[in-house]
Each structure stands twice: as C-alpha cells, then as structure tokens.
Amino acid sequence: MTTPQEENFMRKISAEEKIEPKDWMPDAYRKNLIRQISQHAHSEVIGMQPEGNWLTRAPSLRRKAILLSKIQDEAGHGLYLYSACETLGISRSEMIEQLQSGAAKYSSIFNYPTLTWADVGAIGWLVDGAAIVNQVSLQRTSYGPYSRGMIRICKEESFHQRQGYEAMLALAKGSEGQKAMAQDALNRFYWPALMMFGPHDSESAHSQKSMEWKIKRETNDDLRQKFVDQTVKQIEVLGLEHPDKNIKWNEERGHYDSSDLNWDEFWSVINGNGHCNRQRVEHHVAAHDEGEWVRDAITAYNEKKRAKNAQHAA
C-alpha cells in the first residue's frame, strides 16, 4: 500500500517537478542518488590523476595552461557534486572514506593508464565526450541540486571536449609520429569510452528503478548508441582509422551497427583489476594522509583564534 507521502512523491516525479533536499523521498531513492552522485564526484576527483600525469610533460606552454585549467575545472565539478550529495545527508569525509575503502566506485575509465601525450587529447575528446552525452541527459534528472549541478558542469565539459578534439586534430594533422600517437590513443580509449555508459540495460542492476524515479532519463544502451553515432564522423575528420572494423551504417535503424564490447574486460576492471585501480586509490589515500597534519593545523589555528576572540569579548 502506498502512503500519501509516496503518492505525493510519485506525483511530483510524473509532473516533472524537481525533488528538493527538504522534500520527503523514499529511502531507496535517497540511497540510489547518493550512490550515483558520489560516484560521479569521485570520478571527477580520481580523473585528475591520469591527466595530471601529463601536466609536467605537456609539449607546449599553451597546452600546459589548457590542461591546468581543465583539471582545475574537474576538481571544481568534484566540489559541486560533493556539495549536491551532502544535501542528501552524507558528509564529504564519509564519501571520501567510502572511496578509499572501495565501498564507493568511480568511473572505471580512469583505471586505464595514460601512456602518451595523445591520451590527454583522447580523454578530452572521447571520455569527456561520453560523459557529456550522459550528463546532458542528466540535466533533466529529478533531484534538483543534481540537475542544477549538471547544467553548470555541462557548459564546462563541452569546452573540455573541444580542447581534447582540437589537441587530437593537431596530432592527426602533424608528423607521422604524432599521427601514430593519436591513432594509438584512439585505439586504446575508444572501447573503454563506450563502456562508460555501463552494462547493457538487461544487465544493469540500478537502471530500472533509476528510470522509474527519473534519476536516469535515458538507458545505457540508448546513450551509448548516440555516442557511437556521433564519433564516426569525428574520426573521419581526423583522418584516423576507426577502431571498430564492424562499424556500419544501418539505414533501417537510422544508427550505426557496431561490434559487441569485451564485457569480461569491463567487469574485470570494474572489479579492481585494471592497470591502475590500485594506484589511483593509493594515490588518493597517500595525498589525503599526507595532508592530515595540514588539516590538523587549520583546526588548531582556528581554535586558538576563537579562544583569543572569546577572551577579548570577555
């Protein structure tokens, strides 16, 4: 039997009204959102590492500046998303604990290593590109703070994608060595980028309920298809070879047909066995632990200041 609260909640969802932090919501809705938003926040934060790997080796000052500002944006996205998630009654430190213990996930794409400069371009173009397809759809998500965060984030992400594509274009139109680097990066990042949309709808644990609650607005497979379709032309413009030999326009469907993905690899990386899973989390833990004395210093300083002010007031 549904309670009046539940009824009211579902009425808002059907009427496309946003759910706000103070509104009543089912526990499972809250939990589902915390899982999704914190995972998204952690992805932004962990995503700083594979790109940061090239900050000190960026091949021109202009590229170095662009990469710095992109990574900075990502850290900023992490902040908004942590804040959005905090409105659901979880603290940032709890979320960080969950990230570090492995209880919370982050996008599996960041467990792939960035081996050459071209990988920075490929990440901007393909990884941010795939993220945007997903995030554009999430601008209409039912939870107000998440939806508003997404609107803001989408604006910056489209700049990221453009800079990534432009960096790839410079390589693809450059020397033989640069072109080879671009092709190699495309070959390695294309498949994991497709996997960013998650498993097939039939295998996705959280999809059905998320769709019903309008947390998710489009299915994994539909979003993936959009990305496959938009990428074909982009690869052509670059003059690179498409990594999928089976890519073929299907007139009837109005979409490209493509190879099935290597889901064994997908699950293996999700389950912690990619090239960088351990390294990414350890990096985060190490930086966090090393920062402890700094955070302690702020607390101590603020306490001293408060005590001093109280003395003055007395």
């Binding site: 934060v45 940061g52 700094v294």
Partner: peptide, 16 residues
C-alpha cells in the same frame, strides 16, 4: 606538481 596531491580538494584547485 601539487595538482591531485593537495591536503584537500580546494587546495588542488588553488594550486592549479
């Protein structure tokens, strides 16, 4: 060189 090594996220942003 501090980016992603700061004591908390706000500092990563400030360093950047």
């Amino acid at each position: 060189e501090w980016v992603s090594y700061g004591p908390f996220l706000e500092e990563d942003i400030a360093y950047g």
